[in-house]
Simulated scan of single mutants.
Amino acid sequence: MNQVRIILDWVEGAETSVALPTYQTAGAAGADVRANLPDGAVELVPGARALVPTGLRMEIPPGYEVQVRPRSGLALKHGLMLVNSPGTIDSDYRGPLGVIVLNAGDAAFTVTHGMRIAQLVVAPVVQGQFVMGEINETERGAGGFGSTGQG
């Protein structure tokens, strides 16, 4: 499996005993990232959202991004979602990494210090060159949502 070096640093005030992003299995595409809440927890009532700090900032090599994605177990069991999923961390961003968590479930949920709240996926980036020109037609044409039928 290919590896890309992502350099991490703690933000000021972070609890440095929290585990760094970790792949849970050898074949995992995403590394779990944890909440860094040294002063307590974040309670999310149904419908509420919050920016949960990870205590980290990172240096991503040019030509790559880090995508922030939800953890499927939290989504299934508790209705937790990431509002802007997948979120993108650009290679030139050096600020703190926070995760926007939304409780779409029917019960309150508490995000606790050290809890695995999202996963990080490192991905290559290709930038497009956007130019004006004549667009070729296709069989589908301008057909949008549901235009190709059901099932």
Rank of each mutant, 00 (worst) to 15 (best):
residue 2 N to T: 12
residue 3 Q to P: 01
residue 4 V to S: 04
residue 7 I to D: 15
residue 8 L to E: 15
residue 11 V to R: 08
residue 12 E to C: 07
residue 12 E to W: 01
residue 13 G to Q: 09
residue 16 T to M: 10
residue 16 T to D: 15
residue 16 T to R: 12
residue 17 S to V: 03
residue 23 Y to D: 01
residue 23 Y to L: 02
residue 24 Q to S: 13
residue 24 Q to H: 15
residue 24 Q to G: 14
residue 25 T to H: 13
residue 26 A to C: 01
residue 27 G to V: 12
residue 28 A to I: 14
residue 33 V to R: 06
residue 35 A to G: 07
residue 35 A to C: 05
residue 36 N to F: 03
residue 39 D to G: 01
residue 40 G to F: 10
residue 40 G to T: 08
residue 44 L to D: 02
residue 47 G to T: 05
residue 47 G to N: 04
residue 50 A to P: 05
residue 52 V to C: 06
residue 52 V to N: 08
residue 53 P to V: 09
residue 57 R to Q: 07
residue 59 E to W: 15
residue 64 Y to H: 08
residue 67 Q to R: 04
residue 69 R to N: 12
residue 71 R to A: 05
residue 75 A to C: 06
residue 78 H to V: 03
residue 78 H to D: 07
residue 84 N to H: 12
residue 88 T to Q: 03
residue 89 I to K: 01
residue 91 S to A: 11
residue 93 Y to Q: 07
residue 96 P to Q: 14
residue 98 G to E: 10
residue 99 V to P: 10
residue 101 V to C: 02
residue 102 L to C: 01
residue 104 A to P: 02
residue 106 D to E: 04
residue 109 F to Q: 00
residue 109 F to N: 00
residue 110 T to R: 01
residue 111 V to W: 08
residue 112 T to E: 12
residue 115 M to E: 14
residue 115 M to T: 03
residue 118 A to F: 10
residue 119 Q to K: 05
residue 120 L to T: 13
residue 121 V to F: 13
residue 125 V to P: 06
residue 125 V to F: 15
residue 126 V to I: 12
residue 127 Q to V: 06
residue 135 I to F: 02
residue 136 N to M: 13
residue 141 G to I: 08
residue 142 A to C: 02
residue 142 A to K: 02
residue 143 G to T: 05
residue 143 G to Q: 02
residue 144 G to E: 09
residue 145 F to H: 00
residue 145 F to L: 00
residue 146 G to M: 00
residue 146 G to V: 03
